[in-house]
């Protein structure tokens, strides 16, 4: 097993009297996907912000490529190759795809006061890079606002990869998406992994995490509840742990009853359940 590219050990973060994170340790290796699972309020957002350089941890060690680091801004982390793609803040809707793609890191040509944004290069590169990720855009000039949610996430991922991300932190990239769209994003996560990038995939949906993840870190109430490799844990157990078992069992009994009752939605429910299982099996192979 290779060394982790990014690792935090016993990280704690306090906001006044609130303990947002307590003794959290996790890591990701190059070419692997670490899934960070947790329900709302589990501390996922705080952990992302620590990892991406927005917050400094109050306790604990942050290691990147073997050496200890400390960031004073997200820019510092980005410069080292730790890129974060936020769920809703990834793109600027009114700007064209190519302007978005290079925002903040514009390629320039020319000299002195005549240094200018290399527009042709930007347009060409945007098209090529998205093509490499399997995203076939119609026209790089179209505003990002005309793209679907999944496409937007994908463009943001492609951008991070192009700018040399070695670690990609994805904050709930599939949360607001439909099934098909989520599938598209999951495919890009696999693409990024195959290109040797360490991916930290934050989600509250174990069905999205399981097919792509190599190991799973479960966060609950600001602490690590468990850290499992894929061999150690089947999907069902992951789902149970995520939601705190009992609640979910009640729910699933209710669903089963509804299905047995043969109501109008019964067939559909069964299909959904089968679909999830099939997805998990199919992608896990």
């Amino acid at each position: 097993m290779s060394e982790p590219i990014l690792e935090v050990q016993n990280i704690s973060k306090f906001f006044g009297s609130v303990i947002a994170l307590k003794d959290v340790s996790m890591f990701v290796r190059a070419g692997e996907v670490t899934c960070l699972l947790g329900d709302n309020g589990a501390g996922k957002s705080t952990l992302i912000k620590v990892l991406s350089g927005v917050h400094k941890p109050d306790e604990g060690v942050y290691r990147y490529q073997g050496s200890e680091v400390s960031f004073s801004s997200p820019r510092d982390a980005l410069d080292l190759g730790i890129a974060t793609v936020y769920q809703d803040l990834a793109m600027i809707p009114l700007m064209s795809i190519w302007r978005n793609f290079f925002l903040g890191s514009e390629p320039t040509v020319g000299w002195g006061p005549f240094r200018r944004f290399d527009v042709d290069f930007a347009k060409r590169t945007t098209r090529e890079e998205l093509g490499k990720m399997g995203i076939d855009i119609r026209d790089p000039d179209q505003p990002v606002g005309t793209l679907s949610g999944g496409e937007r996430q994908s463009v943001a991922i492609a951008r991070a990869v192009y700018f040399g991300a070695k670690v990609l932190i994805l904050d709930e990239p599939t949360a607001a998406l439909g099934v098909k769209q989520a599938g598209v994003v999951l495919r890009y996560i696999v693409q990024a992994k195959q290109r040797g990038i360490g991916v930290i995939f934050i989600t509250h949906n174990p069905h999205h995490a399981y097919p792509v993840g190599d190991h799973f870190v479960i966060l609950r109430r600001g602490q690590i509840y468990g850290d499992f490799t894929k061999d150690e844990i089947p999907l069902e157990q992951l789902v149970q742990m995520m939601a705190g078992g009992a609640d979910l069992e009640v729910l699933s009994h209710e669903l089963e009853k509804a299905a047995e009752g043969g109501g109008p939605g019964a067939d559909e429910l069964e299909k959904v359940a089968e679909g999830f299982e099939a997805e998990a099996r199919g992608e896990a192979d």
């Binding site: 980005l78 793109m91 302007r99 978005n100 200018r116 944004f117």
Partner: peptide, 21 residues
């Protein structure tokens, strides 16, 4: 120019622009 792209970006979404540097 780069500055022009930043102007559009900042006006479109302050926080997103800051996040990309």
């Amino acid at each position: 120019t780069r500055v022009g792209n930043w102007i559009f970006g900042v006006g479109g979404d302050n926080v997103a622009a800051r996040n990309v540097g």
